[in-house]
Amino acid sequence: MMEREGMFAGSIPALYDRLMVPLIFDGYAADTATLVASYAPGSVLETAAGSGAVTRVLAPKLGAAARYVATDLNQPMLDFAATRQPADARLAWRQADALQLPFDDAAFDVVLCQFGAMFFPDRVAGYAEARRVLKPGGRFVFTVWDRIEENAFADAVARAVASFFPRDPPDFLARVPHGYHDVAVIRDDLRRAGFTDIAIDTREKVSRAACARDAATAFCHGTPLRTEIEARDAGGLALATDHATAAIVARHGEGPVAGQLRAHVIVAAR
């Protein structure tokens, strides 16, 4: 599962958490935490926990006797997430591959994964692993972004950076985080993994930033798009960010900016 587009290392984890999480993830993290907590689970496994956006919101909502294991394949992201979380005896951090989970069969009431499935090189295998470690009646809860055109800032940045490198346009944003949006494909993958009880809810939210530059910086500096930009021009990050900023200003104006977000929330019961 460790592919170049899944690498969040160096300064990216802190930038991702400081810039990207409030920009696009916090609202969905709150929804996911509320949904999972409504099941009153005794045991929860989070895969692709990233910088801990969901973990921070969900842990306080779980019962005193609950067991919560937060995992990620990327150790730098997991290390950073642990620094952002208060001490909690119920919570364990563990490096793990969502496609080869180091847990017994039927070990958890809920498996959750916020905006991580898009990075799985074999999603059916990842879903089958989630199903394997779920108890009978347990739920697999995960979120994926809708197509990039329905996510305003990501679309503006992707188009701007592509025009900045017209001969070799970076495509991380469209290809990976927004590349797995077809609900028919998602349902089919889940069925192939053994799930039959599947619900998909598409939810719109609003992304807000204090200014266009903050939004552009979040995507250009706080995601692997940065790696794509620097691979094309080692000194071009600032100029590419300027280009993305101008594109957001052109669409959304000066000063505080707001843009549409759209994602799918999926619940598959074992």
Rank of each mutant, 00 (worst) to 15 (best):
H243T: 15
R262H: 07
F165N: 05
A64T: 13
Q75A: 15
Q260L: 11
Q95K: 14
P41Q: 05
D171Q: 11
V265D: 00
E129H: 08
A70Y: 03
A234K: 10
F140D: 06
T245I: 04
A240F: 11
R232E: 04
G235H: 15
D72F: 07
I12Y: 04
M7C: 12
L99C: 12
R84N: 04
P136G: 07
V44Y: 02
G10F: 11
R84G: 06
V185R: 14
A9L: 10
H178N: 12
P22N: 09
A263H: 11
E3R: 13
L58E: 05
D168H: 12
V57W: 01
A37N: 01
T196C: 08
A33Q: 04
R262C: 14
A106P: 03
P169S: 08
P136Y: 03
S51M: 08
R18C: 00
H243C: 14
G179W: 02
L35I: 05
T245Q: 13
L237D: 10
A250D: 13
Y39P: 00
A89T: 13
Q260H: 14
D168G: 04
V133L: 02
D122M: 05
L78M: 04
R175K: 15
L35W: 12
L239Y: 14
V249E: 10
Q95M: 10
E149D: 15
F115T: 08
P22S: 09
L101N: 01
V265C: 08
G63Y: 02
I200H: 00
F80L: 11
A107Q: 02
P169W: 09
T34F: 00
D155W: 11
Y39A: 14
G255S: 04
G6A: 13
A96R: 06
L134M: 03
